[in-house]
Design a protein around this nucleic acid. Structure first.
Lengths: 212, 212
DNA sequence: TATGAAATACGTGGTAACACGTAAATTTTG
DNA sequence: CAAAATTTACGTGTTACCACGTATTTCATA
């Protein structure tokens, strides 16, 4: 790896944000090779320019930042991917590590952190926003809970989050509604959900993201 | 009102977005008087500089764009307020009009629309993003439903959205839980909610924004 | 193949939510 | 003040959710 200023591409589907990030990097003298407004553009840019670093929004049309990371993992591209997002999506932290993602920044803190991040990542050291790190403890706890669920239990949990009743779930999965109830009961036990009516529905809705 | 280029202040709590917007306006030759990173700064800027136009994010620390609009309405400031937001918050359209808000733009389309918006608003004509307009029909329908609710019913709906059970609501409001049940029943009837278990909880959670 | 995990299903009992009705007290409003 | 709207409250019954237990079948895998 060279010690000169790293080559960078960026992608974000919000024009204003893209402009802000682009201007900032140019002002700071980084070697910005290009920018894209969606996942496809970002992916093509990476393929064509093979940048040292790709700073990608997570939520973009056509392809998410995570999907791009996944595709790149298969190829022989050693572009380091940094995700940048508006949301503190705790559940993404784990996935990010699986996919060789080198950084994770919140848009709210981007200006202060982006330089540090680029420097750190250039040296091959992963950089994760402190605000994200704060959540890791929680994440591991919650995710370990989620991972104790069996496939069927997860399937049912998803359907619960989609406002299905036990009977609807039962007929949809061709099983007895009593079975569904048993699964519910088991899920509640495993997840240590507070003993209130509808608490499972509430939980499912609040953690809807994770179930996708 | 002068015909020269209008004076503008902007505020957004996302540094990148703020930078993008700021750079864009400067490049386009607008008279940018200042920018703020939260509601307080934005409000002070408006008081001090009395700009023609204030472009404000809706969600900001200390004070939201809407709250600023509300405060300004009382004062003798004829700054035209344009809201800019990430979310297609249908329910805000109505409030926006009550508060003399002159524009509403989605961040996704800001670059294309921001110039038109400023021009239009400068001429004293309100500007609303087309994407928002598409939603107006739906809004009016849904809001009319919401407005048939009595104050007590709304209060209870809020508490339902906060995961309270009937008994909890009852003890919190010092009324019988039967009364709460009656209110629930009436709410369901008024809102034409589908006859499913928990449908009211689901509705309350989905329309949580409107209830604030 | 044997063991265990997972999925399936039922019994029983309790609580919460909801429908639909009645009715009195209170507040708002013309 | 009188009429209308709102809030309060209860009766009765149905359905859904949840707890806790038992028990059989299926399936992966050690």
């Amino acid at each position: 790896m060279t010690n000169s200023t790293p080559s960078i591409i960026i992608a974000d589907d919000h024009p204003l944000l893209l402009k802000g990030l682009s201007d900032f990097l140019l002002e700071k003298g980084f070697n910005l090779l290009g920018s894209g407004k969606d996942g496809r553009e970002a992916y093509n840019l990476i393929i064509q320019t093979k940048p040292d670093i790709a700073i990608l929004d997570i939520q973009m049309p056509y392809m998410s930042g995570l999907e791009i990371a996944q595709k790149c993992k298969g190829l022989d591209i050693d572009t380091k991917i940094v995700l940048i997002t508006l949301h503190k999506e705790k559940e993404l932290y784990q996935k990010a590590q699986e996919l060789n993602i080198f950084g994770y920044i919140l848009k709210e803190f981007a200006l202060e952190e982006i330089e540090n991040c680029i420097k750190t990542v250039t040296e091959g050291v992963p950089f994760f926003s402190d605000k994200i790190k704060e959540l890791i403890g929680v994440v591991l706890m919650e995710d370990s809970d989620l991972n104790t669920l069996t496939p069927s239990e997860k399937k049912i949990l998803k359907l619960i989050a989609q406002d299905k009743t036990n009977k609807e779930i039962a007929s949809q999965l061709f099983i007895s509604y009593r079975t569904v109830e048993k699964h519910r009961s088991n899920i509640i036990t495993k997840l240590n959900i507070e003993p209130k009516t509808n608490s499972l529905l509430i939980w499912a809705k609040e953690h809807h993201m994770k179930l996708l």
